[in-house]
Amino acid sequence: MSGANDLSVRIGQIKLKNPVMPASGTFGYGQEYESFIDLNQLGAVIVKGTTLKPRTGSFPRRSTETASGMLGSIGLQNVGVERFIKDKLPYFDNIDSCLIVNVGGHSIEEYIEVVDILSREKRVDALEINISCPNVAKGGMSFGTDPEIVRDLVTRVRDATDKTIIIKLTPMAKDLRPMAEICQQCGAQGVSLINAPLGMAIDIETRRSKLGRNITGGLVGPAIKPIALHMVWQVAQVVDIPIIGIGGISSAEDALEFIIAGATAIEIGTWNFVNPGIMIDVIEGIKNYLKSHAIQSVGELIGSFER
């Protein structure tokens, strides 16, 4: 393949053919997008946050649009790990992109049990541990804001699996840098950031939340991009493990900003709803940028930010 630009990147033991993948929770179990996009072209597919037991999730109303973004409270609705393996995993037998399963939980024990079960599945290439879900009462985000819990959780997840582990961090932590350092020390092979910060919107006629009984939700979409980019740049200065940039990416230009700030790969979330084919455009856009700037591989661009 002489002359071709190398888009591949490594995270732990896995090699992604390019740095573009969907953010968990915006991509279902992959199959939802098959009429819009060839999943084989993606760096990886990251599926819905999976818990030990099935979960019905939050009450209605689960989402509301805000300026250049949306608030969401889905509450980790998912089929549970058992049905995931039985009904959703076989679909990936015919897809050659990496498969990353996002793992959620109520307690450290639940995370470990799910990690253990998924570790026995050959087709699962890596696990993204979600210690940052803004919409569950226990676990989720409350785990991701306490450094001692993060240390304990990551250590125990590391002991429970040989697969590549990525820790998904919450911007609700006071400072993401020590969190990312702890993840690295405890054996995580990557950190992904940011998950959704908490937000609110009020209907002034009813004086109730636009998310009904859920009251608050995670803010996603282009509105959070500058905050996410700043956090990726900060974290890139303190860890050596790969960072996966997430937050409001809607174009190749946005993705390149994250890569230059220090991200090895990126996840696209909300924009998949706006344009279900966006990830292919972003991959093409990155390729064209490398070509036009005479850069051999995307690796050369990672963290190339100039002060």
Binding site: G25, R61, R62, S63, I74, F273
Partner: peptide
């Protein structure tokens, strides 16, 4: 119901 995607991925429109 409020929808994010329209094709079953975002799980916003659950009733």
């Amino acid at each position: 119901e409020h929808m994010g995607c329209g094709f079953g991925a975002c799980l916003s429109c659950a009733i």
